[in-house]
Structures are given as C-alpha cells and as structure tokens.
C-alpha cells in the first residue's frame, strides 16, 4: 500500500546539510501497523512528515520515492497532494492535542476537515463529526464542549477522531501517547488497536518507546542517525534483534518481569548529522564494530524478510 524507497530528506543548515533521513526504505500493507522507532534526532518524525510532504521550509526531499497506491507522493503536484492529505493519509501530530482551538467546540473542529475536503453541508458534517466523537469513545453529550474541559487523554481522542474525519486508509501517529499517564496511554493504545481492526486502517506509529511498538504493532522499523538499521515483524525484532543498536536499545529498558538490575546502556551519543561518520553511523558506539565498519554497511535481507544494515550479520 505504501512503499518508501531510498528516501532522503535533508535540512539546510549553517555549514551544510543535515542528513536527517538518509536512504530509508520501508513499506507497509493494507491494515498493517508499522512502528517506527528510534531515539531523539534519529529522523523518525522527519521520515513520517516526508511521506505527506509536511516538512518545514528548510527541509527538502532530495531523493527517493514515496509510492502510495502506485503514485509517487514525493513528486506529485501540490494540488494533487492536497487531495491526498486527510482523505487518503492523515496524521496525528506530536503534541497536537495541545494545539486544539480553544474557542471552538470539539465537534466543530472535527467537522472542519470534513467541510474542507468534501461537498457535504454543515449539518451533514456535524452529524459525521458526532459519529466520530462516539467512535473514539467520548460521550456524545460532550461533543459541544470546549477543549479546556477535556483531559489530555480525551483531547488525544479528539485528535484521533479528527484524523479519521475523511475516512483515510493510512494514519500516521507521531508519539500519540508520550505525554500521557500510563493508564491513559493504555486506553489510547487500545482505542487505536480497536479502530484499526474495525476500519482496516493502516498505521505508522512513531515513537521512542519500544514497548508501545511491541504491544501494538505488527512490524517494527528501527532508525539510527538518519538510517534505517533494522526492519522486520515485531516478534523477530524483539526476539532476535540482529543489529547491535536494536539489541542495545531493547536491553536499555528495565523490565519488571526480569531481574532487578540496572539495564545496560549504550555508551556514547549519536553522531552529528552535519558530519556523520562515513561508514556505519553506529560504529563509534558499537560493541562489535570491526575494521570493515568504516565503510557503509550493506543492506542485508536475512531469514526471508528480516532487513538489517550491519557488516557483522
């Protein structure tokens, strides 16, 4: 359904270009949930924004293609692309639940994209918005409330309803549960999972929290310093991680079902993307790096469908 091939998105900055997303390839099928994970600055959000071309003005897609149902979104005209947004692909932005318009009721805000993207009347749009309010588990009686009357979790539900307003096939969720408490987080995760099944939605979930991906996605893609390092189904990625970074990242999470000890950390910090290392970008922090790692790592597909970019595997 969506196939991203060799995507390169660079930011212009003083002293050169920041290679935020550098030759990233991944795909996802109908009704599939893909988790895109990595630490801050790894390029996961930029990769997601590139899909819909919602990049800031100093960023450019300089290479690669984003194929959605056979069409390349990266090269599509602005006009055509605008028709794809919301209707085919929509996004729940990071922290957007704090950006709801404070002087409009939530039902009006959900109806807004419907009015803009279809020829429906105000009444029809409002009715559709009311159905969406119920769909995301908010009491219909509260549809005419204002954002300040809602808690964080409820506002995130509103954002999800809004993203679903024009019945898209693919929804991108950027850190949808990050600022929420653990119980609310679980409620939202459950909601997304239910909606996905009910509407056969495809989703791309962007997060730094691997456990969210383990619990809600079918496939996982791990990014490091602008590169995709590993991509496979979640059971494989979490059960038999091949890339040393993925393995390290999983081990860095304390596990209440494991032993009581401080998890292992990955020494060092990610490279400066203005001048990334020429070879494997993880090599300076990698416990098993060798001489060959000073050259760019090969793309390997192992065990049928397990992508890993590492010399040592």
């Amino acid at each position: 359904m969506l196939q991203v091939n060799g995507l390169k998105t660079y930011y212009r900055a003083d002293g050169g270009s920041v290679k935020a997303v550098d030759d990233v390839t991944f795909g996802l099928g109908e009704g599939e949930a893909l988790g895109l994970a990595g630490e801050s600055g790894c390029g996961k959000t930029t990769a997601a924004l590139s899909i819909m071309r919602l990049l800031p003005t100093n960023a450019n897609i300089v290479g690669g293609e984003v194929l959605y149902k056979g069409q390349d979104l990266a090269k599509m005209s602005d006009r055509k692309l605008r028709r794809t947004r919301w209707k085919d692909i929509s996004i729940v932005f990071q922290g957007a639940m704090n950006a709801l318009n404070p002087v409009k009721t939530i039902v009006d805000q959900i109806a807004e994209p419907i009015l803009l993207h279809s020829k429906s009347s105000k009444e029809d749009a409002t009715r559709a918005a009311e159905r969406l309010v119920e769909l995301v588990g908010i009491d219909k009686a509260r549809a005419k409330d204002y954002p300040h009357e809602f808690s964080g979790g409820m506002r995130q539900r509103v954002m999800i309803a809004m993203a679903l307003a024009c019945s898209p096939r693919l929804v991108i969720l950027d850190e949808p549960t990050t600022a929420l408490d653990v119980m609310t987080k679980t409620q939202i995760q459950q909601l997304v999972k239910d909606l996905q099944k009910k509407l056969t939605l495809s989703t791309i979930l962007i997060t730094h929290d691997l456990s969210v991906i383990a619990e809600t996605c079918e496939k996982a893609a791990i990014m490091y310093a602008g590169k995709l390092v590993e991509h496979a189904d979640v059971v494989t990625v979490f059960g038999k991680p091949l890339h040393p970074y993925t393995a390290g990242l999983i081990k860095a999470f304390p596990n209440i079902y494991g032993s009581r000890e401080l998890p292992a950390s990955i020494p060092g910090s990610p490279p400066d993307l203005l001048h990334p290392p020429e070879g494997c970008r993880f090599a300076p922090r990698c416990p098993i790096a060798g001489a060959e790692c000073s050259k760019p790592p090969p793309d390997k597909i192992l065990d049928g469908n397990h992508y890993v970019a590492c010399w040592k595997r």
Binding site: S151, G153, D181, V182, M183, T184, K185, T186, Q187, Q190, D209, L210, S211, V212, I213, A214, E215, V234, V235, F238, G239, I250, F253, N255, I256, Y257
Partner: peptide, 25 residues
C-alpha cells in the same frame, strides 16, 4: 494491581492480563 498490569514491556510475546481502568484521576 491495575497500574502494574499495564506497565509497558518491550516484549511482543508476553501474555498477561491487563486491567484497564476506565475514567480518570
């Protein structure tokens, strides 16, 4: 009990009964 049952764990194969509380603080 409920909070512990939903503590995020990076293990997709883990089977556990999650107690999801409704409502909010």
């Amino acid at each position: 009990r409920a909070l512990i049952s939903v503590v995020p764990v990076p293990d997709p194969t883990l089977q556990r009964k999650r107690i999801i509380l409704s409502g909010e603080v």
